[in-house]
Lab assay of single mutants.
Amino acid sequence: EPLWIRPDAPSRCTWQLGRPASESPHHHTAPAKSPKILPDILKKIGDTPMVRINKIGKKFGLKCELLAKCEFFNAGGSVKDRISLRMIEDAERDGTLKPGDTIIEPTSGNTGIGLALAAAVRGYRCIIVMPEKMSSEKVDVLRALGAEIVRTPTNARFDSPESHVGVAWRLKNEIPNSHILDQYRNASNPLAHYDTTADEILQQCDGKLDMLVASVGTGGTITGIARKLKEKCPGCRIIGVDPEGSILAEPEELNQTEQTTYEVEGIGYDFIPTVLDRTVVDKWFKSNDEEAFTFARMLIAQEGLLCGGSAGSTVAVAVKAAQELQEGQRCVVILPDSVRNYMTKFLSDRWMLQKGFLKEEDLTEKKPWWWHLRVQELGLSAPLTVLPTITCGHTIEILREKGFDQAPVVDEAGVILGMVTLGNMLSSLLAGKVQPSDQVGKVIYKQFKQIRLTDTLGRLSHILEMDHFALVVHEQIQYHSTGKSSQRQMVFGVVTAIDLLNFVAAQERDQK
């Protein structure tokens, strides 16, 4: 057995438009009618409502009807409940999964919650491996369901041993009777949507819809739904939504950006999952974080739909894509998950301010006199920076000697690579993860907040409520011999709460 199987392995699926269902090699399930009293909570997966979006479509000038398939009504709160249950049931049916076995899954959280929910009911041990950027709410729900959680670096490539995929496979090879159901490759993922989600949409719309818009992560949702719609409703256009920084969209030119990270969760990847059939997507749109969270908040405030950030991405694209539809036509959007997962993220004004998705003037509360002053007023001194090749031991000596707790790590040209902190280095040394002679590049981390000289002290204040420091950066445009230009970030300084307090105190003292 291989040590790991690539999540982007070539698909062996034989589905073709027009091929009889009787030739399918898979076990198919028909939607079942729910009894009045459910035998367990797993029976509350599927049969989610279709809700008309009344205000947002009109606000953006849509002539067509805009409908939302509300997947956050599933038992675990997301569309991923469907595939989690289906993968477990299919693994039980073919004898792969037996009582007492362990389920391991690399996930952005929602599939993990679905699997942990099913594992709690069915009696399996469950280990979820997820990147650090995923919300604390997801972690809390997983723990409450009895799952064990392993976190991995957000910026690790999918084929790196440190990625959530790599760590999951390492655990599988170490733990007896453990299984990775593997949402990236498992046919049960798109089949769950082909058999149930798509049929529900067709039934709820009486077979009449002209466009379907869905955000894409593993691709199982859009693949399964689109294949069924292509068979039953061939005139329906399928629109895929991919965040900026991901590479799922086609044509490839759409993916060209210097951005590699994004805040919206559960969609987009740096590889093409095996289950994603991009041939059934008629057109791709890219979405960005700001519009995703703005539209998610709009869905909550104006439509009462308590959905997550990827739902915002989907609707932001839908109001663009559906401009081509006329009166009497219908566009369906998939709202994948609930706001429950993001209470401390985009639902929080403070978080939105820190990330730059909300401006101070958007909030009406009274601010102190210094709130709208610029960061450049602080008069920061030149920063202490270190090269990635310097040793951890030497870096600790320098920081202690100069009285700093942290320093930016830059390359020879001064471009920011990340940050090192005294606390992080000492804990890594004590844990045996690094040696004093190791290069400081081994303990770089990139989960820090950046701020510009033109940003306000109010925004800085919000950042420092949650973080010990902020890195002050400025952009530099560099022209190359080819005539092309590129933008790079340079370090201007490091600012802490002490710097802000000293500035405010000094100004008030001078005024007296």
Rank of each mutant, 00 (worst) to 15 (best):
G268Q: 04
A322D: 05
S348N: 11
I498P: 10
A301R: 15
A505S: 12
L363S: 15
L430I: 14
L457A: 02
N255E: 06
E377N: 02
M343N: 08
A431L: 15
D455Q: 02
A470V: 13
L500H: 15
H372T: 14
S287M: 09
A296S: 07
P243M: 09
K359Y: 02
I416L: 12
F346S: 05
L363F: 10
G432L: 10
H462D: 09
K449R: 11
E258V: 10
G432M: 02
S310T: 14
Q302A: 04
G328W: 02
V317Y: 02
K446N: 14
Q376R: 14
K512F: 09
D289P: 05
G441E: 09
A301Y: 13
A301W: 09
L305A: 02
Q323Y: 15
M343W: 02
P408C: 06
Q489C: 14
A322L: 05
I238G: 07
R350L: 11
E252W: 09
I334P: 04
D362T: 12
V420M: 15
V494D: 02
R400T: 02
F469T: 02
L305V: 12
I416G: 10
V332D: 02
Q450F: 12
Q323P: 02
A296W: 02
T279R: 12
Y269H: 08
L384F: 09
Q326S: 14
A301L: 11
E401C: 12
M425C: 15
G309I: 02
Y262C: 05
A292W: 04
K320I: 09
F346C: 05
G418R: 06
A321S: 06
Q329F: 09
S461A: 04
T279P: 14
I477F: 13
F469D: 07
T344I: 02
E401T: 02
Y342L: 08
Q326D: 08
E508T: 02
S313G: 08
Q406P: 02
A413H: 02
L347P: 05
M419L: 12
T496Q: 14
G483E: 13
H372R: 02
R400F: 08
V333Y: 07
G393T: 15
S287D: 02
A407F: 11
E327K: 11
F357G: 04
D337K: 02
P243W: 02
A292Q: 02
T279Q: 14
G414S: 14
W369Y: 05
H468G: 02
P243N: 02
V264A: 04
T261V: 05
A413C: 12
G328Y: 06
D282R: 14
I267C: 05
L254E: 02
N288T: 05
D282M: 02
G493N: 15
V495P: 15
I444P: 14
N288G: 15
F492M: 14
L417Y: 10
L335K: 02
F346D: 06
A497H: 02
T257G: 09
A407N: 02
P243G: 06
T496K: 09
S461R: 06
K442F: 12
W370R: 14
D510F: 12
I267P: 08
V317F: 04
E327G: 13
E465A: 09
L429D: 15
L380M: 14
S437I: 11
Q487F: 13
H462I: 14
V434W: 02
L363Q: 08
R509N: 02
G312C: 15
G458C: 14
E291R: 13
E377F: 02
T456N: 12
D438Y: 13
T482E: 02
N288D: 15
L471R: 02
Q507W: 11
M419I: 11
P408M: 02
M490S: 11
G308P: 04
Q259L: 14
T454L: 08
S485W: 12
V420I: 11
E244G: 15
H474C: 15
A311R: 02
L422F: 10
Q447T: 10
A316D: 09
I463C: 11
S310P: 02
A318D: 02
P243V: 08
D455A: 12
V495L: 09
A311S: 15
F285K: 02
G441N: 14
W284F: 04
A316Y: 14
V440H: 08
I444W: 12
T314Q: 11
A431D: 12
T344C: 06
E265G: 04
T279D: 07
V386C: 13
V315S: 11
C331I: 08
M352F: 02
G403V: 12
K433W: 02
K484E: 11
